[in-house]
């Protein structure tokens, strides 16, 4: 009888312990959604395998959205002469043979959005310098929201004469 009592004490403690853990209230709201980024719309630029001509100016455009507030975005353009990576657009571009970089184009810029919009169109004008190496390049857009969630998209492009 005595050991039964002991047993019930243990079972009860267990019950209380596990019910108290599961009573999570939802009032503790938190942002659980990542921002979204895409170049797959009319006006999104560049598209996969786009060829950029030296000396021309292009507007790099991507659409970003978030459920609460967008915070920052960035654009990175670097060479892919060594074929170290590929894009996430599904299309396979014809890559030129592997080569050493001499004066590759390098673009790295960060931008912040002051008023925390829920949607925005990235629009960055970039002039392709006359003296950069032609060949395969990789272009990557990134976006964060105010919570610190991030999304990225990347696309393979070329710079030609």
């Amino acid at each position: 009888m005595k050991s039964n009592l002991k047993l019930w004490t243990i079972v009860l403690t267990t019950g209380i312990f596990f019910t108290s853990c599961s009573s999570d209230d939802d009032s503790m709201a938190k942002d659980e959604e990542k921002p979204e980024i895409t170049i797959n719309y009319d006006g999104g630029f560049p598209q996969a395998c786009t060829e950029l001509v030296k000396g021309e100016t292009y507007n790099f455009r991507a659409r970003i959205t978030d459920n609460m507030a967008l915070a920052s975005y960035s654009l990175d353009i670097h060479h892919n002469f060594d074929h170290h990576t590929h894009d996430d657009q599904g299309a396979q571009c014809d890559l030129e043979p592997v080569k050493e970089a001499v004066n590759p184009m390098l673009y790295m810029e960060n931008f912040s959005l002051a008023d925390g919009p829920v949607s925005y169109e990235i629009d960055i004008p970039i002039t392709i310098s006359e003296n950069v190496d032609t060949g395969d390049y990789h272009c990557m857009f990134s976006v964060t929201d105010q919570t610190g969630w991030q999304s990225r998209t990347s696309v393979d492009i070329k710079i030609i004469e």
Partner: peptide
């Protein structure tokens, strides 16, 4: 902590301290 900011186009993660409650 992943912050909303960038450094050379990569997201800045900063070591931060906070109060934490755990039960289990």
């Amino acid at each position: 902590n992943p912050t909303p900011n960038y450094y050379e186009t990569v997201q800045i993660y900063e070591y931060t301290q906070s109060k934490v409650f755990r039960i289990g």
